[in-house]
Structures are given as C-alpha cells and as structure tokens.
Design a protein around this nucleic acid. Structure first.
Lengths: 179, 179
DNA sequence: ACAGGCTAGTTGGATTTCCTAGTATCTGTC
DNA sequence: GACAGATACTAGGAAATCCAACTAGCCTGT
C-alpha cells in the first residue's frame, strides 16, 4: 500500500494551481515530473508487494529477467549495470543477494580474469517464471490503463530518455542482444 | 549524470521484444512501468544535481515548496506526509535536515499538543525562491517534451494514481488548501 | 618487456527510505 | 470522569543506493 491515508483531492493539480498563481514557470513540466515521481513510487511499491512472496525486490527481479533473457544465461556484472542503469556497487549488492538465495551463481569469465559472470541457476529460472506470472496478473500497477495508453507513456518517456542520453535517437532497428 | 556509459540501443524496447517472444503477458504495461522507473531515475538525478548548490535534495525542496504554498507558512508534519506521500518517519528526517539548515523551524501547535508544526523561515523562503529559478531553468529534466506532451503524461498518470487510491476520481473541482 | 593508463569488480561509509515499536496526547463512550 | 482506541510524532534498525577509494587484471606504445 503506497499511501495509507488518501487525500480527497489531487495534490499535484493543487500544486500546479499554486505554481501558476505565482508565475513560477514550466508548470506543465513540474506537474509531469511530480506525476512521474509518484507513479514510480506506486509502481515500485506494487511490484515489491507482488514479489515479496518470492523474496524478491523489483531490482532483483529485473536482474533475474535480464539474465533469463541472455543467450548463455549469464552476463558480466558490468554489462548488467549498463542495461539496468545501475551503479556497479548496486549490481554487486543485488548479485550478492541473488547468489545467497541460490538464484544466481558467480562464474569466472573464460578469457578475461577481471570480469565476473552472474549466471542464472535452474532454481532462478523457476522462480523468475513464477514471479513473472504474478507480476503479469497484477498488471504492473497499470491495470487502469489500456495497452494503447501504456504505449503512449512509453513513447513519450522514450523521447526524454533519448534526450537524457540513454541511447541514440536512431536506435530501435538493430535489436540484438549481444551476450 | 544518471548513466555514465550509455547504450547504443533502447534497453526497454529490447526487453519488450524478448518479453513478447516468450508470451509473458502485458508487454505494454511492462514497457510503460520500466519506462516510468527509468524516467523517475533521470528526473530525480537531474533535480538533485540542480539543487545541490542550494544543499537541497528534491525531497527537501518539495517539502519547502509545500510550506511556501501553505496559508500560514506552516503545516503539521503529518499533513506534510499526506501531501507528499511520504512515511511519517521520512517527514521527521526531512524536517530535521531542513531545521538544521535553518530553512524551517519546529513550532508547537496552538491547540493540539501532540502535533508539531514545521514553519518555513525567511531564509527558507529566500532559498526556495532561488532554487525554483534553477529548477525552472532546467526544465525539470523534461525539456525534450512540449507542454502539451507533459500534460499528456500528467493526464495518463493521473488515471493510474486515481486507480491506486491517491484521491477520488471526481476530485479536481474543489481546489482549496486547507491549512 | 614494461610503464602508464584503462577496465572490472569489491569494500567501507554516508544518505535516504521505510518498518516496527514506543511515548504522549486527544476523543468518544459509558 | 475514566478508560479504550485513535492520532501525532520520534527512536532504533533494516534495506537499498550512491560515492570514493582500492585491488586485480588487461592493453597500448615505446
């Protein structure tokens, strides 16, 4: 439950009204940013709750999915951080946890002795399958929106992710997981 | 800088492709959720960076803005938590910091001796004004989007916030800050 | 061959957030 | 008027994240 004591009005709309009354500039961007912040909070809380029975957080679930999607079922920790947009230390922490849970194992890289591979275990694949059923059934906290509306969100945010430098604007045609 | 080592492809689009290939269900919601997560990370990192010269985080900035918008320039801590969707202990922590910085002061409630009021100081108002100029100039990390696109995002996310129980669907007509 | 620079991952510390529990105060009911 | 339950805030602890610094291994140019 993201918010135990709901309000009887839209706090973001109210903030915008006040913002505009003072001519503080960029009210639309302010509203959208605040909405994104709150939406993430709701999504994260919902996902964490759905995943709790599996002893997973959303971050660990995402890491597990990434490994399940990889060709060999394993990836260097650094590459995981790049894909998941996480700091190297966060990856270390996440893999530590997953390893302790037996869902992932650390393996040596065949040629580069610096890099450590995180490899998903059979148990990891089993758990990620079950967990995916659960998150799918929960609708990802977005069951209020149609697939088309979800795609609108994805499209609009894609624009800002490109602007932030996540990936080049032209991308989207060369889909291949190199791993 | 949210991501020091950008990818050359869209990791979310790639995840979706794999998701669909395995028939994992609700791919649009999955993409949108992941996009929201990443967008929040970008927004938060950008805001925190813009606010760093003022020794503020986005959370503390939001609290300060809320107090600046309030009638008396002060609010009970509990009400702040409701508005900002924060846990009571987080509010205590934030007010502790702001108080230590001299931007807020704790005051006794005139009638209810349980409640503590956080009151914005003159210095607090000065800082929040300066900080607001800075965040306005930064475009809230959404300068890639037009005001209309920002409003689309706000509208779509409003729907899911209502569904999550943040406020009743009918709200939006009775705008008044009771405080 | 080897010096310097780069890359990969980990460790320790700081910050933030939430949860559980606890104290103080108010409110409604008998 | 007293007591049970609700409400307001705070304290201590767990989890997650980031940063700075560190070790180990690779790689390029001379």
């Amino acid at each position: 439950m993201p918010n135990p004591r709901p309000l009887d009005f839209d706090a973001i709309a109210e903030a915008r009204r006040q913002w505009e009354a003072r001519d503080w500039g960029a009210p639309a961007a302010m509203s959208a940013t605040t909405s994104i912040m709150r939406a993430q909070q709701i999504c994260l809380a919902t996902m964490d709750e759905v995943l709790r029975p599996f002893d997973l957080t959303f971050a660990r679930y995402e890491a597990l999915v990434l490994l399940a999607f990889s060709r060999q079922g394993s990836l260097p920790l650094g590459k995981m951080g790049d894909r998941l947009m996480l700091h190297p230390t966060s990856v270390t922490n996440i893999v530590d946890r997953l390893e302790r849970q037996g869902l992932v194992s650390r393996e040596a890289h065949p040629t580069d002795r610096r890099t450590t591979l995180a490899a998903i275990t059979d148990e990891g694949r089993r758990v990620v399958g079950k967990a995916t059923e659960a998150v799918g059934a929960s609708g990802f906290a977005l069951s209020a929106l149609s697939p088309e509306e979800c795609d609108q969100i994805t499209g609009l945010l894609r624009k800002m992710r490109i602007h932030a430098g996540d990936f080049p604007a032209g991308a989207g045609h060369r889909y291949q997981a190199r791993s």
